[in-house]
């Protein structure tokens, strides 16, 4: 899923400084699952903003809404009435959701309440970590199901580098060396010889370096 984290409250307060009526819009997709932008977080942020503004002696009216998904126009449009009443919309969706919102409501100020951080998994409640970099050309078949693009600090395709120690990356003792994990797994699968081959230079154009990406399925288009 897409992982996001709430922006620092100071930054959000600064963003909404000149507005009196705010609509906070959550998303019940990825950001709800990672406890950042679902209905619960919308109410927490709403309360926090009201407290902060009350303390400043500046009134604020906050309306709250959560949509099934903010990355689809049909769902975003459902917020139309509430959007009309607001000076600005504070979206707790990922960056894609924020932009879809802005696209559907051209004349409305739309602000991001979250920082979209990565594509990842839930390791345990309260802990998420990165797994995929969305590079557009999956190589997991060649790397034992562990991605060096997303999980090696240097994105090495022929790792590990000389900084791998005790299974950890040179940048931090809290970061696993993914190449150690790849080697461990290939050893278990008795396929270590896969790494003797030199992995060729990567084509980064599907990774976004070929310009913004788009996918079209003719069979689904109406």
């Amino acid at each position: 899923m897409i992982i996001a984290e709430m922006k620092p409250i100071e930054e959000i307060l600064d963003m909404i400084r000149s507005y009196q009526r705010i609509l906070i819009v959550g998303c019940k997709g990825c950001v709800a699952v990672c406890s950042t932008g679902g209905p619960k977080e919308v109410s927490v942020l709403g309360s926090l903003l009201r407290i902060a503004r009350k303390k400043e002696g500046r009134d604020i009216v906050i309306d709250e809404e959560s949509l099934d998904r903010q990355c689809e126009p049909e769902f975003v449009d459902l917020a139309g009435d509430k959007v009309a009443d607001a000076d600005a919309v504070l979206s707790l969706a990922c960056g894609a959701g924020v932009q879809m919102f802005a696209e559907r409501f051209q004349d409305k100020v739309v602000l991001p309440g979250c920082n979209t951080t990565f594509l990842g998994v839930t390791e345990e409640l309260g802990v998420w970590s990165e797994r995929c970099a969305g590079c557009g050309n999956c190589i997991l078949d060649k790397t034992a199901g562990l991605c060096p693009i997303a999980r090696c600090s240097k994105q090495l395709l022929n790792g590990p580098c000389g900084g791998s120690m005790n299974g950890k990356c040179e940048i931090s003792k809290d970061v696993d060396c993914v190449w150690q994990l790849i080697i461990d797994r290939l050893t278990r699968l008795n396929r270590l010889e896969m790494l003797e081959e030199i992995f060729p230079v990567k084509d980064w154009s599907p990774a976004g370096h070929g310009g913004p990406r788009k996918m079209v399925r003719e069979d689904l288009k109406t």
């Binding site: 600090s153 240097k154 994105q155 090495l156 395709l157 022929n158 790792g159 580098c161 900084g163 040179e170 940048i171 030199i198 992995f199 060729p200 230079v201 990567k202 980064w204």
Partner: peptide, 21 residues
Amino acid sequence: DHQKFGNHPTAKGVYDIDSIQ
């Protein structure tokens, strides 16, 4: 060495190709 260690730790690392390539 990773850019994190240096005096511009907020830099974007390139790593387009690796040392073997």
